[in-house]
Amino acid sequence: MALIRIEHVDKSFAARHGSISIMQDISFDVADSDFLAIVGPSGCGKSTLLRLIQGLDKPTGGQIFFRDSPVTSVCTKMAMVFQSFALFPWLTVSQNVAFGLEALGWPPDRIRSQVDRYISVTGLDGFQEAFPRELSGGMRQRVGLARALAVEPSVLLMDEPFSALDPLTAESLREEILQLWRDPELPPDAVLLVSHNIEEAIQLADRIIVLSRRPSHVLADVHVDLPRPRDRKSQAFYDLTDRVYSLITEGGSAPTAPPAANGAAAPQKAL
């Protein structure tokens, strides 16, 4: 059973004259234990797609299923990590991490132990009582991550989580994400990462959905079968980067072309 099924999703926004189509006929599945990245040129609606999946926004056409039931409102079995961290400046680190648990109506003592656990897991010990403005970007995003993981989501959604950070900090957090992902004791069952950084996607994900320029469609569903830790210097890594890059540049230049998901994905799948 697929964890998430995205079936023929269209999205368009009302504009002054008619409407603007953001994406057309997007279909793919997310399986349990998938670390899936969504890449594409800027403005192709990657982030919008992530929001459609959680039910923050509704598709204009098509449907999205989570564990075989349609997503009609915000799905709390998923949790989002934001590009700009989206921490509440008036709440301490602990209170920010407790945010989702409070909304779920957990009893206070359970919230406390859960918060302690995820603060510890993400390396935030020592900053429990700090306010977000006292933290560096790297520490802020750890809070964002701890807040999302604390609700023990089935799916972790990450919307460009490292693009507001300096390169070294981003490198650091990418590695920590993989460390947490490897831990079978920790949620989630699957990760959906939206990124404009192809190398980042290849470094982290097992599968990459490549979207075209607006109105976007799925150009390819690329399986990344490089051994971990992935060596950015290796020929295989280079080749894969090159392939995704040319998919985006070529696919984007012909936006009227029909979805080419199957054809493009076939050689890489190798299964």
Binding site: D32, S33, F35, W181, R182, D183, P184, D206, H223, D225, L226, P227, R228, S234, Q235, A236, D239, L240, R243, P267, Q268, A270, L271
Partner: peptide, 21 residues
């Protein structure tokens, strides 16, 4: 150690895939 659940493809095929790419 690469995945929390058994890897989607056995190790032998990983190198094959990389080579194919």
């Amino acid at each position: 150690a690469a995945r929390k659940s058994p890897p989607a493809s056995p190790p032998a095929e990983q190198s094959a895939a990389s080579a194919a790419a």
